[in-house]
């Protein structure tokens, strides 16, 4: 197969950036999208040109490193699929494909298709954990957790932190990411004691990082390669309202 690629090239955050066209020739329909890019990159390198920069590592859809807009869709048009798991057999021979980085303010471009997503780490640092020191844990089966609750927490916990939700949201909101972590931890007995504080601090941090508000467009859920549900957002909003009410009444957000 052959493709024409229109790729966003940008040398760094300060550079203005531009689209550059490349031909991807002789591509097997069995190769993955990133392998197709590898091929283009190898031919660039062979000519002494710098390859197209993009983030990737596991190539199994689990590390969350890969991140690019493919023809306007985060991770490409296939649902529930990361860019690294997308295969060329889903494209038409001769097709022109446009590649861009995540475009959302809190994710500045590092180079070409690579962005800086450290804002997500800072959100987790603000409260996305259970405060338990190593060695102080009680016996694991002491607190039974109903299977449906554990399964539901797991579903939220499968978020890979890729940023597709924020990149697809017209408001640049990171609510799906934040709410998935909040719901994962708040719904388990181990995370419950800190739930209101966690919610308040993570939401606050998200705002400080410059992510937008959620106005229920629902693009995030469609774009999420792990099909994380938007129900997390409404559940988090409930906790957030509770936490702000408590803050107003008692001058603190509940369990701090």
């Amino acid at each position: 197969m052959r493709f024409t690629l229109k790729v966003w090239r940008q040398n760094g955050p300060g550079d203005s950036g531009r689209f550059v066209e490349y031909a991807a020739e002789d591509i097997s329909s069995d190769s993955s999208f990133l392998e197709m890019l590898d091929r283009v990159n190898e031919s660039l390198e062979a000519e002494g040109e710098e390859p197209i920069v993009f983030d990737h590592d596991c190539r199994e859809g689990i590390c969350g490193a890969c991140s690019m807009m493919i023809d306007g869709y985060a991770h490409g048009p296939e649902r529930g699929t990361t860019a690294c798991q997308l295969h060329m057999r889903h494209f038409k021979d001769g097709q022109t494909i446009t590649l861009e980085p995540w475009r959302v303010r809190p994710f500045p471009v590092v180079r070409d298709l690579m962005v800086d997503r450290s804002a997500f780490d800072r959100i987790i640092e603000s409260g996305g954990y259970v405060s338990v020191n190593t060695g102080s844990a009680p016996e694991a089966n002491l607190i039974p957790i109903p299977k449906d609750i554990a399964d539901d927490a797991f579903d939220s916990a499968t978020c890979i932190g890729c940023g597709a939700c924020a990149a697809s949201c017209p408001n640049g909101s990171a609510m799906l990411f934040v709410s998935a972590k909040v719901h994962h931890l708040n719904s388990l007995p181990q995370g419950e004691p800190e739930s209101l504080k966690r919610t308040a601090e993570m939401v606050m941090r998200m705002d400080e990082e410059g992510f937008g508000n959620c106005t229920n467009h629902g693009e995030c859920e469609v774009a999420c390669p792990k099909e994380i549900s938007m129900r997390n957002i409404s559940r988090m909003n409930r906790d957030f309202v509770r936490s702000s009410l408590l803050a107003r009444v008692f001058g603190s957000n509940g369990n701090s």
Binding site: A137, I145, D151, H184, Q190
Partner: peptide, 14 residues
């Protein structure tokens, strides 16, 4: 296992 459960790792349950 104790440590991970306390951290909120959602292991499979019966």
């Amino acid at each position: 296992i104790d440590q991970c459960v306390a951290q909120g790792v959602p292991f499979a349950r019966e």
